[in-house]
Design a protein around this nucleic acid. Sequence first.
DNA 1: TATCGTTGTGCAAACGATTACACAAACGAT
DNA 2: ATCGTTTGTGTAATCGTTTGCACAACGATA
Lengths: 332, 332
Amino acid sequence: MSGTNRRRITSKELAKLAGVSSATISRAFSPDSRIGSATRDRILAVAREYGYQPNAIARSLNNQRSRLVALVVNAIGNPCEAEEQQLLVHRLQARQLLPIILCCADHSDRLQLMRLASTYQVDHVVIFSDMVSMQDAVDIFHTTKPIIVSFEPLENEDVSNIRIDGAAGAGEIIDKIVADGKRRFAYLSGTKSSWIDKLRRKWFADALARHGLAFEAEAFGDYSYDSGFKEAVLLLHRSKVDAVICGNDVMAIGARDAARRVLGKNTPNDIAIVGQDGIAMAGWDCNDLTTLSLDHAAFMDAVVEVIERHEAGDEGPHSITLACTPRWGSTA
Amino acid sequence: MSGTNRRRITSKELAKLAGVSSATISRAFSPDSRIGSATRDRILAVAREYGYQPNAIARSLNNQRSRLVALVVNAIGNPCEAEEQQLLVHRLQARQLLPIILCCADHSDRLQLMRLASTYQVDHVVIFSDMVSMQDAVDIFHTTKPIIVSFEPLENEDVSNIRIDGAAGAGEIIDKIVADGKRRFAYLSGTKSSWIDKLRRKWFADALARHGLAFEAEAFGDYSYDSGFKEAVLLLHRSKVDAVICGNDVMAIGARDAARRVLGKNTPNDIAIVGQDGIAMAGWDCNDLTTLSLDHAAFMDAVVEVIERHEAGDEGPHSITLACTPRWGSTA
DNA sequence: TATCGTTGTGCAAACGATTACACAAACGAT
DNA sequence: ATCGTTTGTGTAATCGTTTGCACAACGATA
């Protein structure tokens, strides 16, 4: 209520005002500590009056616990990541944990950024980016066991992680497309050097192999609509494929647009197009994408579960695997 | 390099290892402080060897500057906000400022969350949500002058802010639609109680008034695709409008889909549909939306400029206004 | 009434940095 | 050789909490 008071009042000052010691102030704000309930009520009243709140920085220094969580991500603007991050941020906040977002395109900047965040003594680190090697993560956050949310093969078995298995779902999708008469498949990758992308491709390649088929063409984009569009144009000009599996939903939408607009081919009759992620947009009427979809809420529940186990002192490593399921749309 | 060492080494310990005092350690890490360059080099070498980095929490406590920035947003998942946040996060990180995201749907939770963040002594607060009253922001962050990025009329003149003016752009868009022969307009609001939404509506209403026209119908959604779709269906069933101005791009896409799918009306001949924001998706071939667009990069540049002035000690208040310009698509 | 928990509070030492002040050494100028 | 200045380093206080320890007051028990 102090309006535009510049400086924040400290526990020592509040102690003087309430006629107690600063230790007692502290106890008034700690749920289970020996303090008379009358004293606590009085202190809380005075605190409210003067707008006092314990300084979390000082508290963190003393406690050795900051209640900060670093989230290392590739991009916020990408819908899939944005949807997941939104879910995770809500779950963290409900637990009084504050998320610090580390978002960086460039590799060396990213490491710098991770080092910076590690100096803030974050309690947890969640790494969504497979652009970060596990070893770097462990080195930089050596006091905080990170949680890796990605698909890199674990060369370091001491790190908690959450993985996704889309083999079965990819199989279902390929079965249907083959049943629909398509035989000539292309894979439109999200990135050239990503483990996630290689793994996702393998799910589909294995499914194709069971039909005695293989990818006839490949292209690489960057998970963006524009790259999906552009690479699809090139791809469809140079090879006569009738089915394109894309690295994510946004690229699939780009590829669908390219096929329709530039090549005059419509889904699913002329060409089948498949996305991956299962973002909300995939279900919009204008897209209605067939996609290998992940339950993002369950995914983030898993992340939080690992965090809670770490908080409880059980540092694992914990490993959770979630399955992807097809979302059937009109593009394949 | 210490691998999986549990505890982090402190400056005092490093001091012992390097044969200096902890004050000297501190000086080695402060760019312009009196220290022999030989000593500094030696300390930095030893520090690297033992993986020492100054503890930012302790540093913040002493400095009274945390280099944390609170970002209060409505949603991360919404593409417009996600795109802006991405740009802002990059700009902050380039200045060694770490963003803490506060994202909350519920109002009382949001205030709680802001109070929590304020205990972390954030250096700056950027409020993107017009669901937060300016007075609440000022009360909660009374030691940190917040920056309001929204459109609420400023009853408190002491707050820096960035505003958007779309009056001219809305005029251009309305002029064109009227020139195309449309006369019956509807406004599909983003939210019922939002200042931003009222202001945006006014830009278009004023432009219509100059043609002697007014909105014939109104509906309220929640900025989501689904609400755009659903409200458009209801709206177009109960009134024969031939142009719909939407609160944002995502709703416009929903309305366009509804018109096409449910009513069988196509843009722009049967009906004109206009969005607002100018998100990347508006430019995708499948959407190609006519929209009142904002230069998000310039917008975030403005935010950062105000932050830099605050950092330089000039707390203003500063006020920057940016104009919106039309993006011409095939929907209107 | 003497004794023994229990309860509530204060004192003071952490937590890990930064920085004003003091001081010694080194240096240049006279 | 002496003085003044600059340079580099250490000492100790500080930032705002939390918490182990000590202790007084209190009611319950024997």
